[in-house]
Design a protein around this nucleic acid. Structure first.
Lengths: 178, 178
DNA sequence: CCGCACTGAATGCATCTGCATCAATCTTGA
DNA sequence: TCAAGATTGATGCAGATGCATTCAGTGCGG
């Protein structure tokens, strides 16, 4: 299996590594200049605001946001410090807890969205037609489900848990609000 | 200038934020499992090995790699520590220096490339036809030149005050070798 | 020659990240 | 029913990153 790496694939790789991080940077900068916190805060607030009663278990938030557990824990710390969310006891499972978005949190989420959506439009929407954006989605989706096997490899001799998450998942994700 | 953000653009944004970072992760993991250092080291070694006499000014390296100055400085520290590069005095400008790749550095760069190219092919090349890869390049390129104007802006009012960050995008670069 | 603005590079410090581990609690199954 | 194992969430620590500053050296205008 000694495939040859094509120049097209190489060119795509270079752009994959450069362009999105740059675009993210631009958007984050716009948000920051508007006086808002990092995007991760928005994502968390959005997930919380969407949840049935405005509250989620940290472990749920973690799964929604696809970030590591410790990262979730620390993010929650900060949201709580800023009064954007509150920890609430979880009666049914005393190991756990609920994190509930506050009014201030909902408010911030809404205000951020206007700046956020404007930034996305500025840096992505305005540069591509809808058809092009859709084609880009299609191409990126083709790259999506690759690392599950790495995970499997890692614990190959462990449990064969087949947790392979084929997360080509539809857009049910962070950004879209409102 | 109150454009509406389309759902297509939003979907593209989500994928832009997720897919490439995931692909990068996979490639980095592959490299790591093969016992190699981070990709940034490869990039630096590649730039050095390509340079006329195997040496560059740090400031050149910085521009090639699109990473901040302090980051370059620290990366060089590590390469030197590992014997992959050496600092050499710059006679014509005593503020500066040259960084020269060593034989060990050239050797590592070459060895890394075989693992690296295999990983790129596995996670990108094998998932897209050459035509698709080319289309992906085209689409990503449309997004590329968005922050250059930010740079221009910054330069424009540079004299004013602008503590605003003229930060260059952190991005991976320079893959193609051999 | 001097003063002054600028460039090249390093570094102190605060923050962020990842990893490993911990304690508490829940679940399972013998 | 209880021990073994799995889950939930927090945290100590090491390394990475970003920011601002510092230091040395350059080059220009006077």
């Amino acid at each position: 299996m000694k495939r040859k790496l094509s120049t097209e694939a190489t060119a795509a790789w270079i752009r994959l590594m450069r362009v999105p991080s740059r675009v993210l940077d631009c958007v984050e900068q716009d948000l920051k200049k508007a006086g808002y916190p990092p995007l991760a805060w928005y994502d968390a607030l959005l997930e919380l605001s969407r949840a049935p009663s405005g509250e989620l278990r940290p472990v749920e938030l973690e799964r929604q946001m696809l970030i590591p557990q410790y990262s979730t824990s620390r993010l929650i710390d900060k949201l709580v410090d800023e009064g954007l969310a509150a920890r609430r006891e979880c009666k049914i499972d005393k190991r756990g807890q609920f994190v509930e978005i506050t009014e201030a949190g909902r408010d911030l989420q809404k205000r951020m969205w206007s700046a956020y959506s404007a930034a996305i439009d500025k840096h992505v929407g305005s540069k591509l037609s809808d058809a092009e954006a859709a084609r880009l989605c299609g191409l990126l989706d083709r790259l999506g489900c690759s690392c599950s096997d790495a995970k499997a490899d890692a614990k190959a001799d462990a449990k064969a848990d087949t947790k392979s998450e084929t997360k080509a998942a539809p857009a049910r994700d962070s950004v879209p609000a409102r």
